[in-house]
Amino acid sequence: MNRHGRFASRYLDRVMMGQTAPGSYIVTALAPPDDQVSLKPSTDALPSAWDPGAIRLRTVNEAVAHAVGATVEALEHYRSSGSLAGFESGVVDGISYEMTNAIIGIATNADEADLTIEWDKASTPPVNLENHFEFRASDVPTLTQAAIRLAEDQSTAQVSIIGRVHLLAKKQAGSPGVFGVDALQSTGPRKVRVRLADEEDYHEAIRAHEEDLAIQVSGRLEKEGNLSWLYDATVIRTLGSLDEYEASRRARSESNTDQLDLF
């Protein structure tokens, strides 16, 4: 999971999307260039004009266009060389596991997938940025290989754990925070210390602890002595009350046990 996933969600909340017509395969997304999205969650419906943690949507739009263009260049490099090196070197330009998977979703089963960007006519168009990109279903195997390679580069032991927050270490200034999780899964470590990548996730861990909620976290698993640590971790979501989660898990387990193995 991307550590900036919540920022991406706030960005998408500002974007208006819809089909051009019922049944159409053409989807239009309007991202108002002068609107803003905050780097941190806010209780306000919209970030204020003076918010130092706000970024113009136009800036995000240009970054996305740059990343898509880098992905296209990496695909072209693969077609000519058979090497995924273009994807690895293009990480600095925005190529990522998430980007490759997003394009896979666009290109799968498509004779041709077209992505066109129309910049706000009231502003000067960005320099050295393409505004038209094409992908084919034949690109999907290459993108899939690239996604696997990028995931391997990010971590050799990236795991997701569901559990109960049982320990909250006192948060230190400049530190995103640390907490302990009792895992509810049947496999993997039973207890994990979680060191967060983003400080806003610490508040979600506090809420899960106070409200007795099951929580899902993802990060790089490492063993240090008798302790299991999850580094650069992200809180994916809370999964409702612990009692409800446990009841649902037992029901699924019993349901699977009752099924007949016919083959």
Rank of each mutant, 00 (worst) to 15 (best):
N2F: 04
N2Y: 02
A8K: 07
A8P: 00
R10N: 04
Y11M: 11
L12P: 00
R14C: 14
R14M: 09
R14K: 12
M17Q: 13
A21F: 04
P22G: 04
G23F: 00
G23D: 06
I26C: 05
A31L: 09
D35T: 06
S38I: 00
S38K: 00
S38F: 03
D44A: 15
A45C: 04
L46G: 05
P47M: 09
I55K: 11
R56G: 14
R56N: 14
L57Y: 10
T59R: 07
T59H: 04
N61M: 06
H66Q: 14
H66P: 01
A67K: 10
T71A: 15
T71Q: 08
L75E: 02
E76P: 01
E76L: 13
H77K: 09
H77N: 13
R79C: 10
S81G: 07
G82L: 10
G82M: 12
G82S: 12
G86M: 07
D93V: 00
D93Y: 00
S96G: 05
Y97N: 08
I103D: 06
G105Y: 07
G105P: 12
A110Q: 05
D111F: 04
A113P: 07
D114E: 08
A122L: 12
S123C: 07
P126R: 00
V127D: 13
E130F: 08
F133I: 11
E134L: 13
F135A: 11
F135W: 02
A137D: 11
V140S: 03
V140H: 01
Q145N: 08
Q145T: 04
R149P: 02
L150I: 08
D153G: 06
Q154Y: 05
V159G: 09
I161L: 12
I161T: 04
I161Q: 01
I162V: 14
V165N: 12
K170M: 06
K171R: 15
K171T: 07
K171Y: 11
S175V: 08
P176G: 05
V178P: 01
F179G: 13
F179L: 10
S186T: 12
S186E: 12
R190T: 14
V192T: 06
R193V: 11
R193K: 10
V194E: 06
E199M: 08
E199T: 13
E200K: 14
D201F: 13
A208S: 15
V217L: 14
R220Y: 00
W229Y: 05
Y231C: 01
D232K: 15
I236P: 02
L239H: 05
G240I: 03
E244I: 00
E254T: 05
T257R: 15
T257W: 02
D258T: 04
Q259H: 07
Q259L: 14
L262Y: 15
F263T: 12
